[in-house]
Design a protein around this nucleic acid. Structure first.
Lengths: 250, 250
DNA sequence: CTGCTTATGAATGATTATGATTGATTTTGA
DNA sequence: TCAAAATCAATCATAATCATTCATAAGCAG
């Protein structure tokens, strides 16, 4: 069975059921466990599924809701650390862009007393923004249920209505040569334009993003400061050569 | 059974019943008590349930903002009646504007099989739209937390990106002389412009709105058809003189 | 055909999840 | 109120799963 055939079979199975076990796939494809694991890793990188212990599951739509999504819960402590530091950079009265990322969402509780105006394309930020009484605008655009982001030309165009003191962006890849990247070109376009419309731009990330390259280029490292929860020393030197970086460890 | 499968089963059970016992879960999942306890601990950390002695229960709902929940629950049967009729007017492939009203929200489940594209300024519609897999766009604009609507010039302007086959609007007042009205001028502006950009426009209302006049004029009665759950005869005659009306009684 | 690249399966050490056990805590009923 | 039963949380041993590495087979291009 060809790799592409296996991939198609896996995705078709996940159309029928919410999740599937590695053992089931081994039997259905007559491939080894190693091969199936590699398939799943690759399909996860393409965001076509989520790996779970013992198998894989469909990607859950990111319905805004009070509970934490699995994605948001991952590395929560590190995200909160980075978010708190990022929020400390905000001055009273600032106008901010917060993108649809899980780390930028963690900034919201720290913005309460700053009398800021927030523009966002992140649907999962809504409840927190309302709860904290923050003056907020949504970009509008196409509802991308997988990520809970508003994207597309309407989203990007609506940014033209605004100018930001600061933008805070999440990314999926940080690489010295390939820059900041994210899987979806439309989300990349929103991030890029928001960055361009800002006096200052900050990328917020956890260190698992370092060394990764996703499909859609946002901008080069030099175009944004980086706030991150840790990095190896040699990576730190490389980044410092290209941009401003703040490593937040507590 | 995968961990994620157990979690899904637990949450699905809690959709059907208020609470569930650990013993029940042990039997249903063929996992041990220890494992179930761990599952419950994790789901509680994600705020998806509350642990109780001997089991788990749904999270007690936050007291919803009174104005929103009272509005949504009021005359729910009538609203669903009107909404179902309104949805029956939708053809496959239609492009629709659904405003932020509680009656228009009730249309969503009836749109699932119609392959429609929906534009809305109603934040409370998000979950249902995503859940029903409806291709959806948000207008963008200022987040008005009291009503869950997106309003303001950005909201109205973003409508220029679209042309609609049909618009469905809620109102707060229906009056033969004063027309269709709603309290907030900014919401009125969104409704008016959506109506203007549509081939057909329908106001959805329950009869409690008849005879009422709110602060902001949307448009005259002649500018939109009206779908309503009932009216006195003399009122019916008056409306019929000005526009198309459909009274839906079952 | 040869040399190179890619994909595969197996092995191995690392990591995670599970079930059983035990002492602590809560609930129940007399 | 108190004793007993039920439930809980923490701990531990172990099985299952995972990621990495390596050898080799399969596929590809010249």
């Amino acid at each position: 069975m060809l790799t592409t055939e296996r991939h198609q079979l896996i995705l078709n199975l996940l159309k029928e059921k919410q999740s599937i076990k590695i053992q089931e796939l081994v039997e259905l494809t007559a491939a080894s466990e190693s091969t199936i694991r590699r398939d799943l890793t690759e399909l996860e990188e393409l965001q076509k599924l989520e790996r779970v212990f013992g198998g894989a599951s469909r990607i859950a739509p990111n319905v805004p809701e009070p509970s934490l999504s699995d994605k948001a819960a991952k590395n929560l402590k590190e995200k909160q650390l980075v978010a708190r530091y990022a929020a400390s950079l905000v001055k009273t009265g600032d106008s901010l862009f917060l993108d649809a990322g899980t780390t930028t969402a963690q900034m919201i509780p720290f913005l309460t007393d700053k009398d800021v105006t927030v523009v966002t394309n992140g649907l999962s930020h809504l409840e927190a923004l309302i709860e904290h009484g923050i003056t907020s605008y949504l970009t509008g655009g196409f509802i991308k249920s997988r990520t809970g982001a508003l994207v597309g030309p309407q989203a990007t165009q609506s940014l033209e209505n605004y100018r930001f003191d600061k933008s805070f962006l999440g990314v999926n890849g940080i690489h010295p040569v390939h820059g900041f990247t994210t899987p979806d070109p439309e989300e990349a376009a929103v991030k890029r334009r928001a960055g361009e419309l800002s006096r200052s731009c900050y990328v917020l990330a956890d260190q698992s993003k370092y060394g990764k390259v996703s499909f859609a280029h946002i901008f080069d490292l030099s175009r944004s400061a980086l706030i991150i929860d840790g990095l190896p020393d040699e990576a730190l030197e490389e980044i410092e050569r290209q941009t401003t970086i703040k490593v937040v460890t507590q």
